[in-house]
Write a protein that binds this DNA or RNA. Structure first.
Lengths: 211, 211
DNA sequence: CATGTGATGTTAGTTACTACCAATCTGGTA
DNA sequence: TACCAGATTGGTAGTAACTAACATCACATG
């Protein structure tokens, strides 16, 4: 019984996964999401459709990998618990975005950021993807509420936390759309901070523009 | 040439539409959304699957009729334009909810409200429906921004309006979930007002002194 | 080297949905 | 009354996203 599933196998698995996803995003961008079949993706990646389905349960998942959730949750707990929830969540969102896009100072959009942009473009323009993406927010909302660590026995407290989380996420999503429309020229954390400020006033983020 | 498409025909059409939807929601509730095929719905309604598809373009649409959008938009323009956008939108959302559930005469949950609850329960518990429902918010957001009637040439103003709209809608959705979990015992407008207050502070709605 | 586990392929089936064409029914008119 | 135009419905066939079941292959570990 192998305690670790053979690091080499894991790597290969991750590699094919990435390969499939890259081909998928490329094809979706070139021909459009709906006009591209899973069979097309499989052929482009040089494997059978079944293999694609083994790595990505649905066609939508070929675009919608979520690295963001865990990131945000861990930042939440790092925030001082005394501050109002909207501020804690807002800071976590801004920080996570900084980590995710993480570009060094003068650098333009990196290759991975270019890929992120391509995925987001698809997520925003394609109905099916947009819908699932927004539904992921739903899950993320729960994660945030849990991470806030409030008294879960008081329904009112939970409700307030849920509202704060969903509203913050919605603001962030709008910021994301803006960022994509701008082709990622501006800095994502800044845009998010602006969105949060617009929604909740200056109480939200200390902006802490750059470190 | 008929100037109006024959009111009688329109009524019949609306009737079959309603019949299909009622059977659909009933079956979905009884057996589950995924376990119920469109053919099942068609059979229950006593017609061919094609007819169902003629009235509802997708299976999801059998649950997701949106009466809310137009309602909200028209309330927005009715609000005094001087107030902050979050307040205008918030008031519109609360008012629209009041109109929609409209149980002014102390009747308790009406039959139509019971139906609304059943639909919302499905929308919240079923992934596909939840996703599409949230995507509808996306459309609604645009409608709200348009209705606000701000200067659309200034991208920053538009951005702020978009953020306000999306955040308000997210808060409202959370309220909706809460309302459903409570089986509609509380009054929807009150819950929404509470959610908005939790998100944006007391600046939002002035209609409810208790809480 | 033997062996078992995980990755891959093949096939057949279900279901949502989309043309395309035929039948039928409705409401108003000559 | 008889009939026409348009609206509603039904049937057939096809596409595409999945799913389940079984066979095969590769490779890491004993």
């Amino acid at each position: 019984m192998p305690v670790q599933p053979s690091k080499l196998r894991a790597r290969r698995r991750a590699e094919t996964r990435r390969a499939i996803q890259e081909h998928a995003v490329r094809l979706f961008t070139e021909r459009g999401y709906d006009a591209t079949t899973v069979v097309d993706v499989a052929e482009a990646a040089g494997m059978s459709p079944m293999t694609v389905y083994r790595h990505f349960p649905t066609k939508e998942d070929l675009v919608l990998v979520d690295e963001y959730g865990a990131l945000v949750a861990e930042r939440i707990v790092a925030q001082p618990a005394a501050q109002p929830p909207v501020r804690r969540i807002g800071n976590a969102l801004v920080d996570s975005a900084a980590t995710l896009t993480g570009r060094g100072r003068g650098e333009g959009p990196s290759a991975s950021e270019e890929f992120l942009l391509a995925r987001l473009r698809l997520m925003i323009s394609t109905q099916a993807l947009r819908a699932r993406h927004l539904d992921n927010h739903y899950v993320l909302q729960q994660a945030i509420v849990d991470a806030l660590g409030y008294d879960t026995t008081d329904p009112d407290t939970v409700f307030r936390a849920q509202v704060a989380a969903s509203a913050c996420l919605a603001a962030m999503h709008t910021a994301l759309v803006r960022w994509v429309e701008d082709d990622g020229r501006t800095e994502l954390p800044t845009v998010i901070a602006k969105a949060l400020a617009a929604a909740f006033g200056e109480v939200t983020v200390g902006t802490d523009p750059d470190a």
